[in-house]
Design a protein around this nucleic acid. Structure first.
Length: 193
DNA sequence: AACACGATGGACT
DNA sequence: GTCCATCGTGTTA
């Protein structure tokens, strides 16, 4: 029997623990394969930065569904952001993929990211060529986005999240953004340690 | 039906 | 550091 590509319990734990496990994992879509270098946990309940904080809506519906699925949304009318849904069904937590390094698919990567940068969530979405139509699809086989095991970082950094000024102070300062300290594909290093 | 705004990125000072 | 493109979404009326 083939090993389950989704490790038992991998997505049944707190989003912050899953975020740490996702660092170094690989994500592939539309001909490009990347290694995840920066992530951000959106916990549930009680996280005032979480898109699901006000309850279920058509957009955030995948967050309330089973773990191991994608939640993709359009930000600022321009950027497609990739999240991986965590926790059991009904637990609307997710991990935002904020940065990644190229593994393969260089031609497409160059076409989508001419400057070679992939140190922000909108850039990751662009590099993978994903769209909101991919929201809700499975991420461990059978879907357009596939996540698999990779090489974990030797140096793990943690720091406050970015771009959530609307959230409560406690949620803004919480070190729920994680990064591979040895990677160049990491956004604002300010606050990471 | 109208409206305010964003889990950003890129250009610019 | 500042400015703002761009449009789907959620809220309010």
């Amino acid at each position: 029997m083939a090993p389950n590509p989704l490790p038992a319990g991998f997505y049944a734990r707190d989003a912050l623990d899953v975020a740490a496990d996702l660092l170094g994992c690989e994500v592939a879509a539309n001909g490009v394969r990347l290694r995840i270098t920066e992530v951000e946990a959106y916990r549930f309940p009680g996280d005032t930065a979480n898109h699901a904080r006000m309850g279920r809506t058509p957009r955030n519906a995948p967050m309330w569904g089973p773990p191991g699925h994608a939640y993709v949304y359009l930000c600022y009318g321009l950027h497609r952001m990739l999240n991986l849904v965590t926790g059991p069904e009904g637990h609307a937590a997710a991990v935002l993929v904020r940065g990644a390094e190229l593994i393969s698919g260089e031609a497409l990567w160059r076409a989508r990211r001419p400057d070679g940068r992939c140190d922000g969530p909108g850039k990751v979405g662009a590099a993978l060529g994903i769209g909101v139509a991919d929201s809700g699809s499975p991420c461990f086989g059978g879907g357009p986005i596939v996540v698999s095991a990779g090489s974990p970082p030797a140096l793990l950094l943690a720091g406050p999240r970015i771009g959530i000024d609307y959230a409560a102070e406690s949620d803004r300062v919480a070190p729920w953004r994680l990064a591979d300290g040895d990677s160049r594909q990491v956004g604002r290093r300010r606050g990471l340690r």
